[in-house]
């Protein structure tokens, strides 16, 4: 009930990609970071984006989030070509990014963090109760049971709880695509498990989820699709069930997989 748009979206558009990129190019000066990337994010699916350091993962998500513009290529959202010039445009479309550093204010409570910059009520008389209710509903909707009070300061939360708050903030705004940058990198085993469950739940609610991760255990546990970036090219976007761990490692490290016969041709095979 807290994410109504996403629930509606789930059954109707599950076939068609929510977000699709074609032939994305991006250079920083002489450095050609992205060389013709194609990517599809489908509703209700977790798309894992993997690749070695420097493969262009961060550049790709920053471009999707509107932090810097792509040089070339098509950016389609819900089937329509869109122009994203800034983070606000991306938010308007329903794209939210949870960055690795989470961007939470330790000195504010959970509710304040979730609504930061987008408070409810008049700006001279905030509606704290409405914000608290909606925060609680959103967390309950995600079956988060680990937060005793939404009025706890973030400084008192554990790493997993912080990640949960950051993710809940991202889904608060009827978002359709949530991009998670290394959500489990700093977490222990139990907390990693909680966050991965949460990631799965987001997809089950019909959101398109992009999960950036170095950890293939996480990827194989939670992802539906795996997209591999190698030196700025998307060398494969495949269903998880169609590949083995070894093949993914090979794709990440060499850009091709002998056994699968894929080469660096952006093969989206499904």
């Amino acid at each position: 009930m807290s994410v109504p748009a996403a629930e509606e979206a789930a059954p109707t558009t599950s076939g068609q990609p929510l977000l699709s990129l074609r032939g994305i190019q991006k250079s920083f000066g002489a450095v050609h970071v992205l060389r013709g990337v194609d990517l599809d994010v489908r509703p209700g699916h977790v798309t894992a984006l993997v690749g070695d350091n420097g493969a262009g993962k961060s550049t790709l998500i920053k471009g999707i989030a509107g932090i810097h513009a792509f040089d070339e290529g098509e950016y389609h959202f819900e089937g329509k070509p869109v122009k994203v010039h800034g983070p606000r445009d991306a938010n308007q479309l329903g794209i939210e990014v949870v960055y690795q550093d989470l961007a939470l204010c330790d000195n504010l409570d959970v509710v304040d963090n979730m609504f930061l910059g987008r408070e409810l009520g008049r700006s001279v008389r905030l509606d704290d109760n409405a914000m608290e209710q909606r925060a609680r509903e959103t967390l309950d909707g995600l079956s988060v049971r680990t937060l005793k009070s939404v009025r706890t300061h973030v400084s008192a939360l554990s790493g997993g709880q912080r990640q949960t708050v950051a993710i809940a903030r991202a889904v608060l705004w009827n978002s359709k695509v949530v991009i998670l940058d290394e959500p489990t990198a700093a977490l222990g085993v139990a907390q990693t498990e909680q966050v991965l469950l949460l990631v799965r739940r987001l997809a089950d609610r019909g959101l398109g989820v992009v999960l950036i991760s170095h950890n293939l255990n996480d990827v194989f546990e939670v992802a539906d699709d795996i997209a591999v970036l190698y030196l700025g090219q998307l060398v494969a976007q495949v269903r998880k069930d169609d590949v083995t761990r070894g093949e993914v490692v090979e794709l990440i490290t060499t850009g091709s997989s002998e056994k699968r016969g894929t080469d660096t041709t952006n093969g989206v095979d499904r």
Binding site: A103, N107, L116, G117
Partner: peptide, 24 residues
């Protein structure tokens, strides 16, 4: 305590980068 400006003051003091990314 009750205005969005007040929240933004605390947010800026707590984590200016987070505040900036939240559109403040």
């Amino acid at each position: 305590s009750r205005t969005s400006w007040g929240k933004h003051v605390y947010a800026t003091g707590g984590n200016a980068e987070a505040a900036r990314r939240s559109g403040i």
